[in-house]
């Protein structure tokens, strides 16, 4: 059996999830040059928001076709609320402060969010079973399930909508302007505070979409799920060129596929048995990051910009 198509599909799926989360890192960075390390936790709270809608609000036996959109809305609301709240109360007061200050705030916020969920969400001290979309389909030699289709479709739809929004809408163009030069943009009458809030909100919503897909795909969520996913998504954003939304998605896909293929095939290379397999996936992913940064320090799609800081 040729496993390559299936492995590529696995990588693509994982990469789409990284990409969706990476959007949040890249948009916030593009506009305020802040690495929002609490973004992984915003992803996590999105998952818990969606689970709350499913478990506590919807009546038992609601069909998934109805439940999933509602869960997206619920998870999205929670994630947006927390992302925007973080911006308003944690980052805005520190705007203009040395860059280390908001960074440390972000780390503190991420710990706080984890602990709040662990201590106050019922049953969150261990993994919580999330409803799945587990019907599987065989397409040629590829087996995928409904949750995978949901993930791919939502990644495509989200990316297309974002691209349209940024390029065509008034707010989107204001966003580009702010990213290029916030001071000038403000002088031109753009409300930069509003733009920043929108950037956080979009990032939060995308993270929530990824979180719902994560829950549907893996079948359970826990309060630490944001840590590794956040770190990987951040890597994806840097890989693709931080600040560039297409770069974030591309970085996610490259990272996901590289990781999957590395763990699938490296141990088949003679002499490399010890360096292959699932447990080395992260190592190869970060090797790839280092390589790319050596050759293209600005990332795959990043532009070499004059440093403004």
């Amino acid at each position: 059996m040729n496993t390559l198509p299936q492995q590529l599909a696995n990588g693509l799926l994982l990469g789409s999830m990284y990409g969706l989360i990476a959007i949040g890192y890249t948009m916030v960075y593009g506009i305020v040059q802040l690495i929002n390390f609490a973004h992984g936790e915003i992803f996590m709270t999105g998952a818990f928001g969606a689970f709350t809608v499913y478990f506590y609000i919807l009546p038992d036996g609601t069909s998934m076709a109805v439940a999933v959109p509602l869960m997206l809305i619920g998870g999205g609301l929670v994630a947006i609320l927390i992302a925007v709240g973080a911006e308003r109360f944690a980052y805005r007061p520190l705007r203009g402060a040395p860059r280390l200050a908001p960074l440390i705030t972000a780390i503190g916020l991420s710990l706080a969010l984890q602990e709040v969920v662990r201590n106050f969400y019922p049953g969150a001290d261990r993994a919580i079973a999330f409803p799945g979309l587990d019907t599987t389909h065989d397409i040629g030699s590829i087996t995928i399930k409904d949750a995978d289709i949901f993930l791919i479709l939502s990644a495509i739809v989200c990316m297309a909508a974002l691209a349209y929004f940024v390029r065509k809408s008034r707010t989107g163009r204001a966003m580009q302007a702010t990213a290029q030069d916030p001071d000038t943009a403000q002088l031109m009458g753009i409300d930069t505070n509003r733009i920043i809030v929108i950037a956080f909100a979009i990032g939060g919503f995308f993270a929530a979409v990824a979180a719902v897909a994560y829950g549907l795909k893996y079948g359970n969520i826990d309060y630490r799920m944001g840590f590794l996913m956040g770190l990987k998504a951040f890597t994806a954003a840097v890989l693709g060129g931080i600040g560039n939304i297409y770069g974030a998605m591309l970085g996610g896909l490259v990272l996901g596929i590289a990781e999957t293929l590395a763990s699938a095939y490296i141990d088949e290379i003679p002499g490399m048995q010890q360096l292959g397999g699932q447990s080395w996936a992260n190592v190869w992913a970060f090797c790839l990051l280092i390589l790319v940064l050596l050759v293209r320090p600005q990332g795959l799609l990043g532009e070499r910009v004059a440093d403004r800081a």
Binding site: Q7, N10, Y218
Partner: peptide
């Protein structure tokens, strides 16, 4: 094969197992 504690995605491993 080996995994890391904390890993969440086993897609690649699953394909190997199936194969």
């Amino acid at each position: 094969d080996h995994v890391n504690t904390g890993d969440k995605d086993f897609g690649s491993l699953v394909t190997k197992i199936k194969n």
